[in-house]
């Protein structure tokens, strides 16, 4: 920030937070990678070979990826109209209020919200009841405890996240640019394509990355909505850790999850970086 002459020695201020991060985040991460590389046969990639040779583990990894992918894509699509509405259809004064209306449940328990969907989606839940009242037919929805339900729950959460970051990008677009474009004869669609879309993309991509990360690592929604029959990686990890106490295996799964996140998120982060630079240029 402006003039850094203010304090000369940042360490007394920085050290406590840094210590916490080093001791309980950096060190455990290194330890986790180390554990994943050690097996009974010594140091090596044995644990990883075992992981990829076990069908139910690789299936869980694929499930985690698919669930996260689908819910993030849905979230990404939903975020545009929502953010667009709040930024361009609502008076400036009321924008934060509308944003809060979308985000409010975000600040409350994830578990509770996942559970509340059970009440709506289950075979004797509200939707099934409504269908029965309206049509007289009693049908089993068969929606709860499927991967679709997991995707639904996570997409909803991701939408809030994406809307939030996209809102930030859209709201900071200089209105003069849009006015100028319009004066020069640009139609709404052109304004969207040439101004709003490129300026909104960095914020949108940030939301996409964050929601992918949340979705791939979540445990509560896949358990409460997706059920236990087709577990995702997070569920496997927990059962390994709480059930068998096989530390190396748990560490291996965690390392694979972390690697997957990095591999999937890195191109998006890079893309976002390129977009931002091209905007600034």
């Amino acid at each position: 920030m402006v003039g850094s002459s203010n304090i000369t020695n940042p360490w007394p201020f920085l050290l406590p937070a840094l210590m916490l991060s080093c001791l309980f985040f950096l060190l455990p991460t290194i330890n986790m990678i180390f554990l994943s590389l050690t097996s009974e046969s010594g140091i090596g990639f044995g644990n990883f070979r075992d992981f990829f040779a076990t069908p139910h583990l690789t299936q869980a990894l694929m499930r985690s990826l698919l669930v996260a992918l689908f819910s993030t894509v849905i979230a990404g699509f939903v975020a545009w109209p929502l953010a667009y509405f709040i930024v361009f259809c609502v008076k400036e004064k009321w924008r934060p209020l509308f944003l809060l209306a979308i985000l409010a449940p975000f600040w409350t328990s994830f578990t509770i919200r996942a559970f509340s969907w059970q009440l709506v989606l289950s075979d004797n839940g509200v939707i099934a009841w409504l269908i029965e009242q309206l049509t007289g037919l009693s049908i089993a929805l068969g929606f709860l405890y499927t991967m679709k339900a997991s995707v639904f729950g996570l997409a909803l959460f991701g939408s809030m996240l994406c809307t939030f970051t996209l809102y930030g990008a859209l709201v900071s677009i200089d209105k003069k640019v849009i006015e100028a474009a319009s004066t020069l004869g640009a139609k709404p669609l052109q304004i969207f394509r040439d101004i709003i879309l490129p300026l909104g993309l960095p914020g949108w991509l940030a939301g996409i990355v964050l929601s992918f990360i949340v979705c791939i690592g979540d445990y509560a929604v896949p358990t409460l909505l997706g059920g236990g029959l087709k577990p995702v990686l997070a569920q496997i990890m927990l059962s390994v850790l709480k059930g068998t106490y096989n530390l190396s295996q748990a560490a291996t799964i965690a390392t694979i999850l972390a690697t997957t996140v990095i591999i999937c998120a890195a191109p998006l982060v890079l893309l976002r970086h390129i977009f931002r630079r091209s905007i600034l240029a």
């Binding site: 455990p28 986790m32 560490a251 965690a254």
Partner: peptide
């Protein structure tokens, strides 16, 4: 993913 914070500290 938050789960990694938990698992990291627990393993440690």
């Amino acid at each position: 993913p938050i789960i990694l914070i938990g698992i990291g500290i627990r393993l440690q």
